[in-house]
């Protein structure tokens, strides 16, 4: 594969697993995130696995001035530029309830920042006439629930944004895959109560790669979350509002 992938939020374990699988296929990588030391390690690992290029660039969803450098680095590579967005943040809903100012950060990390970044990238993908965007949303975005509705709302916004971006890039030869993971075995979920059917980051990365190859539009990973969420979405609101699922 002689394609270039921008990985936003490269320090998450899902992103790490995805980047390593791309590296196995020889992809060029631009790893973007905040923890430079951690990303340097992942970059070295990807080079050892077969990436001809694996570089790190600082990116902070809350600092739009960091966005340009990421895009410029990717632009230096010829051919198709793809982007996978793994950024997002999920403070406890109770913390947000206690401090409403946290809402802004969640929405910036999970929706506004990535959307602004992709708006900057879209014209380049259009000009090159190719490229795939992988946007990692969440099953939490399918319905607002008492446990994490601010995070869910941000992800729902991101889903809708991705749907529109797909509509736009499709006409220029590009593509957008919306990924909705269920519970994934990461530092975020480690030791949390009430986890079930937890998937490994490697499994999620495999599912994403398959979806990219088949140009799927919206995937749930693991697949059965599609059916779980179908049920959850079909509960009438007058009942749902009394549930705590």
């Amino acid at each position: 594969m002689s394609e270039t992938w921008i990985i936003l939020g490269a320090t998450s374990s899902m992103a790490r697993a995805f980047a390593r699988k791309l590296a196995d296929d020889g992809a060029r990588l631009v790893l973007a995130g905040r923890d430079m030391d951690d990303m340097k390690r992942t970059a070295a690992d990807c080079r050892a696995k077969g990436s001809p290029v694996a570089e790190v660039v600082r990116f902070d969803a809350r600092q739009p001035e960091t966005f340009g450098a990421v895009i410029r680095r990717a632009e230096r590579e010829d051919g198709t530029i793809n982007a996978a967005v793994f950024v997002g943040s999920m403070p406890d809903q109770s913390a947000i309830d206690a401090d409403p100012s946290l809402v802004d950060g969640v929405i910036t990390d999970s929706f506004a920042g990535p959307a602004r970044f992709l708006q900057m990238l879209a014209p380049i993908m259009e000009a090159r006439g190719s490229g795939t965007v992988v946007g990692v949303g969440s099953v939490a975005g399918d319905r607002g629930r008492i446990g994490n509705y601010v995070y869910g709302a941000a992800k729902a916004g991101f889903h809708t944004y991705l749907s529109g971006l797909r509509n736009r890039l499709t006409r220029a030869g590009g593509h957008v895959v919306t990924v909705k993971p269920g519970f994934v075995d990461t530092a975020m979920t480690w030791g949390l109560e009430g986890m079930f059917l937890v998937a490994t980051p490697e499994k999620v990365a495999d599912d994403i790669l398959k979806a990219v190859a088949k140009r799927k539009n919206v995937i749930y990973t693991p697949f059965f979350w599609r059916w779980i969420m179908l049920i959850i979405r079909s509960v009438p609101e007058f009942i749902f509002k009394k549930l705590s699922v």
């Binding site: 374990s13 340097k40 070295a44 690992d45 080079r47 050892a48 696995k49």
Partner: peptide
Amino acid sequence: TRMDRVIGFDPETGIVEVE
């Protein structure tokens, strides 16, 4: 088990640094 990356390799000497 999540500290699992190759963090350096020198093809001259064959010395690999790993987590």
